[in-house]
């Protein structure tokens, strides 16, 4: 085992799959010689050559189109969108084309493409870099959307994403890239897509979260523990499709739930989770399911982002409302 940051784990996952399958190709803006602007692809071009790890011209739509075309010639593309705020440039390739390929080709072309991209707030980026746009992706039938919160999960989930036969959007929270290290096996392993993970067990309240908000939720849970509340934190890990079984099992155990997302209230995944809980487990609930989210504005300018982003304190406040309902 090695101590790895999330960015190292992501790099390691790509290395593993480049080794395992000669059809895997990694490409995007600055991913080659430069190793990506965050160094996620550091060393990969050197090890696997320019044929397999390469820079593209600057154009997200082009990158998406390339991925589709390469998948049609038997490759397994891992494309990078340098920052996920630029996804609008490639929405047609992703939602208009890739997500529909299997459907409109009678199952002939399935599009085993992985779309990797950094996102997430708290690191003072310029506009259109930090936005949480997973909701956009989740709203498109045909796509799987993964958001890891730890180095261990990051590696196992990325390997699964690359091996998956369908298009997978794999979003990497920038604040988590280097924020902590964790034991990560050097050998290959997978974590199944579509499976949540209980990051902390508890009996009084379930917090459902993903990405950086998992860590804010864990902080809140620890504080709440001191006040005598036993709080469970469930990391969704795959936000589309949701792990309904895990979500309902947790709610049936705790009878109270909140959902936390970094995205604005009108965006993200939380509304889906709440809807699923109320449809499937309303009789297990002792309180309404509440959400902790960012407000419904455009992602703010860097100096104002910390006041805007949801944090452990906000989570505690909402948790208490539900606990004392």
């Amino acid at each position: 085992m090695a101590q790895m940051t999330m960015i190292q784990a992501i790099n390691d996952a790509m290395k593993t799959e480049l080794k395992n399958d000669e059809n895997v190709l990694v490409f995007g803006e600055d991913v080659g010689n430069n190793g990506g602007v965050f160094r996620a692809t550091e060393g990969l071009q050197k090890e696997f050559g320019e044929e397999r790890v390469f820079d593209t011209p600057l154009g997200e739509s082009g990158i998406g189109g390339l991925a589709i075309g390469l998948s049609l010639t038997g490759f397994r593309p891992v494309m990078e969108i340098q920052f996920f705020g630029f996804v609008y440039e490639v929405m047609d390739s992703i939602s208009g084309q890739l997500a529909r390929m299997q459907f409109r080709s009678g199952g002939k072309y399935n599009g085993p493409v992985t779309i990797r991209s950094p996102f997430g707030g708290g690191v003072a980026t310029p506009e259109m870099h930090a936005d949480s746009l997973e909701g956009l992706m989740a709203a498109q039938p045909g796509l799987t959307v993964v958001i890891p919160s730890t180095p261990y999960d990051a590696k196992g989930l990325l390997i699964s994403a690359i091996r998956d036969e369908n298009p997978v959007v794999y979003l990497e929270h920038m604040k988590l890239y280097r924020s902590f290290r964790q034991e990560v096996p050097e050998e290959e392993y997978t974590i199944p897509l579509g499976k949540a993970d209980v990051k902390r067990e508890g009996t009084d309240l379930s917090i459902f979260a993903y990405g950086a908000m998992v860590h804010e939720s864990l902080k809140a849970a620890e504080e709440l523990e001191k006040e005598g509340h036993s709080v469970e934190v469930v990391d969704l890990r795959t936000v589309q499709p949701l792990d309904i079984e895990a979500i309902i099992a947790s709610v049936e155990k705790t009878n109270r739930a909140i959902v936390v997302q970094e995205a604005q209230k009108q965006a993200g995944i939380a509304a889906n989770v709440v809807a699923e809980i109320t449809e499937r487990a309303i009789l297990s609930l002792e309180a309404p399911v509440l959400r902790v989210t960012a407000p419904d504005t455009i992602y703010p300018f860097a100096q104002g982002e910390n006041a805007w982003l949801p944090n452990a304190k906000d989570i505690m406040e909402t948790a208490k409302k539900v606990l004392t309902f």
């Binding site: 407000p295 419904d296 504005t297 455009i298 703010p300 300018f301 100096q303 104002g304 006041a307 805007w308």
Partner: peptide
């Protein structure tokens, strides 16, 4: 900057 500023310029 306050969050209320952001809301007001939406």
């Amino acid at each position: 900057q306050k969050v209320s500023d952001f809301i007001n310029i939406m």
